[in-house]
């Protein structure tokens, strides 16, 4: 009974559709992660700025991302922007915008934490040597914080991959929604379809997220001091 459910993968274009769904998931997640990791480094610097106004602005940004659920941001950007300015963003673009907006704030906070965890004498020593602010970041701060922010940022990356399942609400059919469509269609003839489809989705998510963890482990060794 259970193994006969496997046939769900070979009916029609089901397998191709699941792979297409996975590509959508990957595209949104990887573009967002790449952008927000870079932007997050800069956001982190701004969060540790000496100017109270800059810090306050970043604080408002971070809190607004934290307080408002990602789903609400998706609705705001996808439907709200169209209603307010008549600008018709595609679902994928809206998703990437929201993910970058969210990821940059969280990444920035991770970077801020890493910078502030550096003992103050590191920076003072740099100043005593006559290094400029930029030189201190380049030669003293950056090499040390990169390794410190790895674990938290890898968590953020895998979380972003998994949160892509929300983009169905802005009309983007990613891998989980594709699976559900196939399950609902196959249910009558093949009640075991849900087991196999969700099983495959589980494996696919693992195949996406595991290399990210491997990369982080490798980087931790490379950047060891």
């Amino acid at each position: 009974m259970l193994s006969s459910g496997l046939r769900v993968f070979f009916e029609g274009r089901n397998m191709a559709r699941l792979m297409a769904g996975l590509l959508v998931t990957l595209k949104i997640a990887l573009i967002s992660i790449a952008i927000c990791f870079l932007a997050g480094l800069l956001a982190g610097l701004l969060m540790t700025s000496k100017r109270p106004a800059v810090r306050a602005a970043m604080r408002v940004y971070l809190e607004s991302v934290r307080i408002v659920p990602v789903l609400v941001w998706l609705f705001l950007v996808f439907f709200g922007v169209t209603r307010a300015w008549g600008l018709n963003l595609s679902g994928e673009l809206a998703a990437v915008l929201v993910f970058v907006f969210w990821g940059t704030a969280e990444m920035g906070d991770i970077v801020r934490g890493a910078i502030q965890s550096l003992p103050v004498h590191q920076r003072q020593s740099g100043m005593a040597l006559g290094l400029t602010e930029a030189q201190i970041y380049r030669h003293v701060v950056a090499p040390q914080i990169l390794r410190r922010l790895l674990p938290a940022s890898i968590n953020l990356a895998t979380r972003m991959v998994k949160t892509t399942s929300l983009v169905v609400f802005v009309g983007v059919t990613e891998v989980v929604k594709t699976g559900q469509q196939i399950i609902e269609f196959s249910n009558s003839k093949n009640p075991a379809a849900a087991f196999w489809i969700y099983g495959l989705i589980f494996i696919l998510y693992f195949l996406v997220c595991y290399p990210i963890s491997l990369l982080s482990r490798r980087l931790e060794k490379v950047w060891a001091y």
């Binding site: 573009i31 870079l38 932007a39 595609s90 994928e92 990437v96 970058v100």
Partner: peptide, 18 residues
């Protein structure tokens, strides 16, 4: 960076149709 991201995604989004 944001501007680049906007244009890059804008181009690729044409492929999405249900």
């Amino acid at each position: 960076g944001l501007a680049l991201a906007l244009t890059a995604c804008g181009n690729s989004s044409g492929a999405q149709t249900s």
